[in-house]
Design a protein around this nucleic acid. Structure first.
Lengths: 232, 232
DNA sequence: GTCGAGGATTGATAAATATCAATCAATGAA
DNA sequence: TTCATTGATTGATATTTATCAATCCTCGAC
């Protein structure tokens, strides 16, 4: 592990409040790996031997069943992923694959569980992280069950816009094929959905989105913090 | 609180390993309430003042948006619910309503958070509970995104059957209107789905389900532990 | 027992979404 | 540059799912 990786990891909410000693113990067992794009990091059903921390690049989390595949989430730096499996010492429920070149820290799951027992501040951070992750998935379920695909897209755009600093134009973080899968629709349908949203002032140019009439789009999308605020 | 409520609560995985003193401190601030059927216990968006423990009866957890409503889960005794909101001190994401007469213990959220800080065994139990809840919702998301409504019903029946001790016949735990909402479909569609499953040996008589040909149904449903095993 | 009320079912139709096939456009390798 | 590959879009069609309306049960109140 490069020494300058430490501060980035240390700054994560999950590790921020750890005692110095425990953090170093964790880092001693950890190591960094570099991956090319399109590499499987994790396969569904495998034992969860490592907690992963993404330092650079993009990683997609997806699941498969009966020959079908769906995108469940994407992670951007710097974030941890698959904490729950690590804690439960249970098989991964999602697979992970690099979308770009990526640099990832692998921390042995045993060490994480040991640190949890040893450091109350770390325990608190883990609980906060899990509770937040849980709530985030519940919000996603509400999105899926209560909204049509067009409504999901409209609200997704508003969320991405907010992440981009509420600017009237922003870029999609990945291709539309993946976005379709994330939103639970086909690429063809996504194309048509974008076209339908033109009526509410949404313009697209490749992966660039421009929201012409904020109020109009929001009137249609009816965003709700209990679904769309993915931070609390 | 009736003294004979204590053992039931104490036996829950969440409280089982707590130090005696901490458990009693929690119980001192807690109180029991009895509710008639169809009473709102919790409304979406309200501050999460209490952790709830269901002692008797059935409670449904649901969510609404834009005039639509969907059932997200049901709880049976003895279980806690909405732990994540309590921990995060964040608004409830789901509403809760009694389906039958119900007896519920209310534990002030502050007390739960205090006990978390004071008792490492309780902290461990909370983490285990949250990690498990998270994984359970992820499995549900995979079910929703990867399967058709007919496939969801088939797998739901297999899960309920297993819960009923793998018997060839068992009763649905609530009415079909609710089941339809839980599975993300309309009651009309559920009726037709049951009819379609007759081809795989599923017979219904009111809320009673008989699985005539286990292997045949499983061949169609393709159950998968990474979706359908809701206990790990 | 009779009567209602609410859930369940059925049929007809509409809407949403997926599939299939055919371009079209962008991008990177040679 | 040119070609090949991959993603995006479009149109036509099929499938899935929802909606609407009309019964049909079932079960509890009286």
């Amino acid at each position: 592990m490069r020494p300058d990786d430490f501060p980035e990891i240390r700054a994560l909410p999950l590790f921020r409040d750890m005692a110095e000693e425990g953090f170093h113990a964790l880092m001693r067992g950890a190591y960094v790996q570099n991956f090319p794009p399109q590499v499987d990091l994790i396969r569904e059903g495998e034992p969860s031997d490592f907690l992963h921390v993404l330092l650079d690049g993009l990683v997609e989390l997806f699941a498969t069943w009966n020959g079908r595949e769906t995108l469940l989430a994407t992670t951007r730096p710097v974030t941890t992923f698959i904490l729950a499996a690590t804690i439960r010492d249970a098989p991964y429920l999602m697979a992970a694959r690099t979308m770009t070149r990526a640099r990832v820290v692998l921390i042995p799951s045993e060490d994480v569980r040991a640190a949890f027992d040893a450091d109350p501040a770390f325990a608190r951070a883990i609980v906060a992280d899990l509770a937040q992750s849980y709530r985030s998935v519940v919000k996603n379920t509400k999105d899926l069950k209560l909204r049509s695909s067009l409504e999901r897209l409209a609200n997704y755009l508003l969320r991405e816009q907010r992440r981009a600093g509420a600017a009237p134009a922003f870029d999609l973080p990945f291709d539309k094929r993946r976005l379709a899968s994330l939103l639970g629709m086909t690429p063809e349908n996504l194309s048509r959905a974008f076209k339908s949203l033109q009526a509410y002032g949404v313009a697209t140019d490749g992966g660039r989105i421009a929201i012409g009439d904020q109020a109009d789009l929001e009137r249609f999308a009816k965003p709700n913090p209990l679904i769309d605020d993915r931070s609390t």
